[in-house]
Design a protein around this nucleic acid. Structure first.
Lengths: 133, 133, 133, 133
DNA sequence: GTGGTCTAGACCACT
DNA sequence: GTGGTCTAGACCACG
């Protein structure tokens, strides 16, 4: 796996895991239908607790990014990703607002902020593209 | 006060307070040198504990957004806001990356994402400008 | 533990704790990566409140002397200590100025004052060195 | 007066006043027997509270740096300054220890630390010299 | 009256 | 069991 955890970070490990898997999907490194390591396997590889991996997988399942089959194990959602729900829009805006305010106070202009957003988006997609759904 | 807290939210109260005060500064509702309510006062107004407000004020003080003036009490930094440090850039990018990935997976295009960022930025500034140095 | 607190002192307990931990690092008694007692544990050992220890740990974390590791708990900064920042130089000079003035007024010569500084420095390092980067 | 107060500082105003007066004596700007402004006068000049000035003067009187006469008002100790008491030595060492440890941890060498101390001492004396007592 | 400090006790998220 | 968060009540230094 391409996953790197920062045990010193203040973001919980399970959240870091979620983020990195989502980024993996966004970048195309993980394609719809692709299998993910089993809970046990991944936990061992990363040197973390089973519960932690489990929590991440469950969250991703709830969001519709993953499917969990008894047989196939865990795979990336093959039937189309969730799409931009209202809940997501709201969450996105709420977080952007917080970031934008901090940026503005520190003197970062609208132009730079928007450009920063664009370039970060582009970099997360590099390898391929996020035209799922 | 213009502050609204969601006591049920999973984001800590103190963090919400920090965000809203920063947004207040960004929007111009709070001008450099402006006094903020005393910890006791604000705590009572918001129906929360004094220590929670204190924690928020302290964080903002450490970041350089607020100062404790021995006569005026707590005031908005009058001597120029912190500016875009490398640490801030990094934090900004890290958070943007997470948002961008989720957006991309859900099918939101780069264009829409950047536009969203821009419009959110603009809305936080509405009232008036961010002429920090 | 090697920590001694003076509960009657006018310097806050949390500040004494901070000082002693820094001295522990300087003397080599605490090595980079070494774990510190949990807040609860140390609080109990010292007979003080958990929050007081917490405050000290937090300050040291913000200064970059400690880290919170999600598995090891609180540890001494393993990735290199902060270094001599301008802010630190300023604080150092401000405090030295106050001490030097009092010393001078009482008739202590420059030579003695400098020698005193040197010998105190040497004594804090005794056990072993300060090979921070 | 040559006194500058920093109302944003975390050092209490009365302590800043004490420091600056001691520095004034150390530098020779204030000579033994020299009169100081009355409590009222100084308070007004500095825009601070009477009690604050009073507290500073009292502390300096207790330490033996000032004399308070009903007639002459407040004057700089004309009968020889206190000298290096054991209590002072202890306080000096305690504070130096804290500074030295922080300096050492940040990588400042003994040589630099001692040199810093020496140069700060020299600068506080510039105008004249502290050979009282 | 203000912020700073300390104590005490409680719940929760995380691992 | 760990750190993080929140509440509650209290004392003190400061101005």
């Amino acid at each position: 796996m391409f996953i790197e955890l920062d045990l010193q970070s203040e973001t919980p490990i399970y959240a870091q895991l979620v983020d990195q898997i989502v980024e993996g999907i966004a970048s195309g490194a993980l394609q719809p239908g692709d299998p993910l390591p089993s809970v046990r396997r991944l936990a061992e590889d990363l040197g973390i607790n089973l519960h932690t991996v489990n929590k991440s997988y469950n969250l991703l399942k709830q969001e519709g990014f993953l499917q969990v089959h008894r047989k196939k194990g865990v795979i990336v959602q093959p039937d189309g990703m969730p799409g931009v729900t209202e809940a997501f829009e709201e969450k996105l805006r709420r977080q952007l607002r917080s970031l934008a305010a901090a940026a503005a106070v520190r003197g970062m202009t609208e132009e730079v902020f928007a450009q920063e957003s664009r370039s970060v988006y582009r970099n997360t997609i590099t390898n391929h593209g996020g035209e799922q759904h």
